[in-house]
Every structure is written in structure tokens, then in C-alpha cells.
Computed example of a mutant assay.
Amino acid sequence: MNSTIKNILAIILGWIGGSIINMALIQVGHSIYPIPNIDINNMNALSKVMPTLGTNYFIFPFLAHALGTFVGAIIAYSMATNNKMKFAYIIGVFFLLGGIMINFMITGPLWFITADLLLAYIPMAWLGGQLAQKISKK
């Protein structure tokens, strides 16, 4: 298979794999910490209640963003044919852009937005790439 096609697939499958992890953890979080009297699919209602929620409601969103990026970066790194770390970072940037968008749409507390945007995306892409590199050398 052509290396360009493999690299494009690395990004697509890294994004899909990371998104599956992200959504699964969000769903687990909502089942463990349900928000009372809120339809979680209603962005306006969710946005209004977010600043009033306790720290426990933000554990799973942070884990979802961080681990989704981490897994996506591992997939992209593992599938890319060259400049593998670049592909892990591309996944990190895609998820960071999504994180910026969701933090504007559903505004949470400043501490969460700061931690989310600074720790969950690019650092986790780096960690995912580093782990994939170590695994591939074995």
C-alpha cells in the first residue's frame, strides 16, 4: 500500500479510535455521575449547569479527552510509515481543536478548562507517541 495512503489512514483511524475511547469514557462518567434533571444531549441546559457542578463531574471528561488523545496518538504513530511522531502530534492537535470547541460550547469552570487544554491533548499525544515508539522497538 502506498505510504501516503497509510499515513492518511493512520490519522483517520487514530482519530476514530481515540474518539471511541473518548465517547465511551464520557458515557461511563454520565452513568457514574449523572447530572440530575438534565438532558445531557441539550447543550444549552448542560452549559448552564456546568459551572455549578462539583469536581467529581469533571473527572471522566478529563480522562476521556486525555485517554482518547493518548490512544489515538498510539494508533497514528503505529500505523504511520514515516515521521511517526508527527502523526501522533497531528492527533493531539485534532483533539485539542475539538477540546477548544467544546469548552466554548459548554463552558466549565476555569480550572477545568485550563487543565483540559494544557494537559489532555498535546502532552498525551507526546506520551502516546513515546509509548508506541518503545513498543515498536521491542
Score class of each variant (00 low, 15 high):
Gly92Glu: 08
Ile113Gln: 08
Tyr121Ala: 08
Ile26Glu: 11
Ile26Cys: 03
Ile16Ser: 01
Phe112Gln: 11
Gly14Phe: 07
Gly108Phe: 04
Gly18Asp: 05
Pro51Asp: 02
Lys86Ile: 15
Met101Thr: 09
Ala115Met: 14
Leu13Cys: 03
Val71Ala: 13
Phe58His: 09
Leu97Asp: 06
Met23Arg: 06
Ile100Met: 13
Ile113Asp: 05
Phe58Asp: 04
Phe95Cys: 04
Thr69Lys: 02
Gly29Gln: 11
Thr107His: 06
Phe60Val: 04
Thr107Asp: 03
Phe112Pro: 11
Met124Phe: 15
Trp111Tyr: 10
Pro51Lys: 01
Asn37Pro: 00
Thr114Ala: 13
Pro34Asn: 06
Val49Glu: 01
Leu67Ile: 11
Val28Ala: 14
Pro34Asp: 03
Tyr77Phe: 15
Gly18Ser: 06
Asn41Glu: 12
Pro109Lys: 15
Leu110Thr: 08
Gly17Glu: 10
Lys84Thr: 09
Val49Gly: 00
Met101Val: 10
Thr55Gln: 13
Ser31Trp: 15
Asp39Leu: 02
Ile38Glu: 05
Phe112Cys: 07
Leu13Glu: 02
Lys84Cys: 06
Ile74Asp: 08
Gly99Met: 08
Gly99Trp: 03
Thr55Trp: 09
Ile12Glu: 05
Ala24Glu: 04
Met101Arg: 05
Val93Thr: 12
Pro123Tyr: 10
